[in-house]
């Protein structure tokens, strides 16, 4: 019984950590640029979860003040994450733009092939 309660109390943290680690793994292990960006955004959303889940109070309501309610969720992480999401999509699109330009320059979005092309053209040192 105690063990079950312990697991339930920390389940959200563990899922957060799992998502974070999965994102990290995708970023490090996969050579494809688009896949890397997806992994990066998974990493990012896990951080959103990390911020938001301690702010929740069981039996509480969203932080919109109204009569007859008490026990609001903490508004501060909401604000931080709200801006982080929009900034996240802006930076994601910047990364995607870089991927498109890399694809135009190298004809591929795989890391290994880009390195090969780099080595072939090493003396020329252009692009």
């Amino acid at each position: 019984m105690n063990l079950v309660q312990e697991i339930l109390a920390h389940y959200n943290h563990w899922i957060t950590i799992f998502l974070m680690v999965a994102g990290l793994y995708v970023v490090v292990a996969r050579g494809n640029m688009v896949k890397k960006l997806v992994g990066l955004s998974i990493f990012q959303t896990s951080v959103y979860l990390l911020y938001l889940s301690p702010g929740k109070i069981l039996g509480g309501t969203p932080p919109i003040i109204g009569e007859g309610y008490s026990g609001y969720a903490n508004p501060l992480p909401h604000v931080l994450i709200l801006t982080a999401i929009v900034v996240g999509v802006a930076t994601l699109s910047l990364g995607l733009a870089l991927v498109v330009r890399i694809n135009e320059a190298y004809g591929t979005i795989e890391e290994d092939e880009i390195f090969e092309t780099e080595e072939q053209f090493q003396p020329g040192e252009d692009e």
């Binding site: 999509v89 802006a90 699109s93 995607l96 733009a97 498109v100």
Partner: peptide, 10 residues
């Protein structure tokens, strides 16, 4: 503006 501009650019 930024979202639409990014979409147009892509």
């Amino acid at each position: 503006g930024t979202m639409v501009a990014i979409f147009y650019a892509f």
